[in-house]
Structures are given as structure tokens and as C-alpha cells.
Simulated scan of single mutants.
Amino acid sequence: MKVKIDIDCTPDEARSFLGLPDVSRINEAMVDEVVRRTEANLESMEPEALMRQWSSIGGQMTNQFMEMMRQAGTTPGSGKGS
């Protein structure tokens, strides 16, 4: 046996019915702060500086990957005297 109940209500009505607190003001304050910080950081970052930073990280990751591949390709005991 299946029972299906559809409840048509707004999020505010559901929150009130379930006894949950209204966090809309806190949510708005947090979103405003995230937007403010994001805009402040975007204004301080130059595209050229971002590209230099990203390309240096990419180069380091490539070097680390290549070193890992070299180590994986070297079998223990493959040196002299084996």
C-alpha cells in the first residue's frame, strides 16, 4: 500500500509549521558579506598577476607529476649489481 501526500506551502510556511527558526536575515547578511568580500578581492586582483600565479602553479604540478612518473617507472633493484 502506498500513501502519497502533497503539501503545497511556501518555505516560510513549512519552516513555521515545523518550528524552525527564521534565518532569512542571517542568510541575507552572510550573502551580502560574501558579495562584499568577493568584490573587494576582484578589484585588488590584476588579470596579469592571476595568470602568473596560475601558470606557476600549473608548472609546479607538471613537474611533480613527471617526477612521480619517473619514480613509478623505476623498479627497485634495477640499478647496478642486480
Rank of each mutant, 00 (worst) to 15 (best):
K2D: 04
K2T: 09
V3P: 01
V3L: 07
V3W: 01
V3D: 00
V3F: 01
K4A: 14
K4F: 08
K4P: 01
K4E: 07
I5S: 00
I5K: 02
I5W: 00
I5D: 01
I5V: 13
I7S: 02
D8V: 02
D8Y: 00
C9I: 09
T10K: 07
P11M: 01
P11T: 01
D12W: 02
E13Q: 11
E13Y: 02
E13C: 06
E13G: 09
E13P: 01
E13K: 06
R15E: 01
R15A: 04
S16V: 05
S16G: 08
F17K: 10
F17V: 11
F17A: 14
G19P: 00
G19Y: 01
G19V: 03
P21G: 04
D22E: 07
D22S: 08
V23H: 04
V23K: 12
R25F: 06
R25P: 00
R25K: 10
I26P: 04
N27H: 08
E28L: 13
E28V: 04
A29Y: 00
A29G: 07
M30R: 11
M30G: 10
M30N: 12
D32P: 03
E33H: 12
E33T: 11
E33R: 15
E33P: 05
E33N: 15
V34D: 08
V35W: 02
E39H: 07
E39Q: 10
E39P: 02
A40T: 10
N41E: 08
N41W: 01
N41F: 04
L42Y: 00
L42P: 02
E43W: 03
E43T: 13
S44H: 07
S44D: 08
S44Q: 14
E46Q: 14
E46K: 15
E46G: 15
E46R: 15
P47T: 08
P47A: 15
P47L: 14
E48K: 14
E48F: 06
E48L: 13
A49F: 05
L50N: 11
L50W: 06
L50D: 06
L50I: 11
L50Y: 10
L50Q: 14
M51A: 12
M51R: 13
Q53L: 15
Q53S: 12
W54S: 15
W54N: 13
W54Q: 11
I57L: 14
G58Y: 00
G59W: 00
G59P: 03
Q60Y: 04
M61Q: 06
M61D: 03
M61E: 04
M61W: 00
T62M: 12
N63C: 07
N63T: 10
F65P: 00
M66D: 08
M66W: 03
M68N: 09
M68C: 12
M68Q: 08
M68Y: 05
M68E: 05
Q71G: 11
Q71I: 15
G73T: 01
G73N: 10
T74L: 12
T74E: 06
T75D: 06
P76E: 02
G77F: 04
G77T: 03
G77A: 11
S78A: 15
G79N: 12
G79P: 03
G79T: 02
G79L: 10
G79F: 02
K80R: 15
K80S: 13
K80V: 09
G81V: 03
G81D: 05
S82H: 05
